Computed example of a mutant assay.
Amino acid sequence: MFRNKKIKIRVSGWSALLLIIAILAISLTLAISVPYFGFYGLYNILAKFNLASIDIFEKWYQDLFYFGWFIILIFSMIILLDLFCLFIIASCNIKLTKSVDTISTIMQFAISVVLFKKFIVAGFERIDVTWAGTFILFLLLYVVVAVFSYEKPKKVNK
């Protein structure tokens, strides 16, 4: 899922200006859309279908700390599971192919859903997520990670 990638960007002149304008446009779009489609937006959609419920604190900084810790735990769990699966693959001397990577991701997804529902959500009294909500939440999370970690196949010159 998370792979070490080298990013090389060479920009100058108009392409640098266009890149800066694109970054500003994306940042502005995110600033406007995150309150509607970010964490609270996703919660509103899940709450609408009775897949999750969250009790909000009275002060915004309590919400930030509580839900920030919740998101950090989810992210940490995913990274640790990915490292654990890579360790298993390396220790068994299995060649990392697309099929092995796909099977590993599916296993990580299943383990993530179970660990999240059984341990992480159980530790937070103000958050309740159903099994279907957990499945949808992690499906969206793994799809986003898969999109950002996609690597184009390299051309082979003959």
Rank of each mutant, 00 (worst) to 15 (best):
F70A: 00
N44R: 15
F65E: 04
K59V: 15
S53F: 07
F75H: 10
A47L: 05
A52R: 06
F65D: 02
Y66S: 04
L46W: 04
W60H: 12
E58G: 15
Q62T: 11
I72R: 07
I71A: 02
I72L: 15
S53N: 15
F57V: 13
N50Y: 08
F75T: 14
E58P: 04
I72N: 08
N44Q: 14
I71K: 06
I56N: 06
D55G: 08
A47P: 00
E58L: 10
L73G: 07
F57Q: 15
I45P: 08
F57I: 11
W60C: 09
L51V: 06
E58C: 07
Q62K: 11
W60L: 14
I71R: 05
G68F: 06
F67H: 00
N44S: 14
K48W: 14
Y66M: 01
K48E: 12
G68C: 00
K48R: 14
L73R: 09
I71S: 01
Y61C: 01
I54N: 03
F65S: 07
K59Q: 15
E58I: 10
K59E: 10
L64N: 04
D55I: 13
F65W: 15
G68L: 04
S76D: 03
I72H: 03
I71C: 05
I72K: 09
F67M: 02
F49N: 09
E58Y: 08
Y66Q: 05
L73Q: 09
N50C: 02
S53I: 09
I71V: 09
W69F: 12
S76M: 04
F70H: 00
Q62D: 13
I54E: 05
L51D: 03
D55V: 15
F49W: 10
E58K: 11
S76N: 02
K48T: 14
G68T: 01
L73C: 11
F75W: 07
L46Y: 06
E58F: 07
E58R: 11
S53H: 13
Q62E: 10
W60S: 14
F57K: 12
F67T: 01
S76H: 03
I56F: 11
F49A: 07
L51H: 02
S76G: 12
A52I: 03
A47I: 04
F65G: 00
F75P: 06
I54D: 04
I45Y: 10
I74D: 01
W60Q: 13
N50D: 15
F75L: 11
N44Y: 13
Q62A: 09
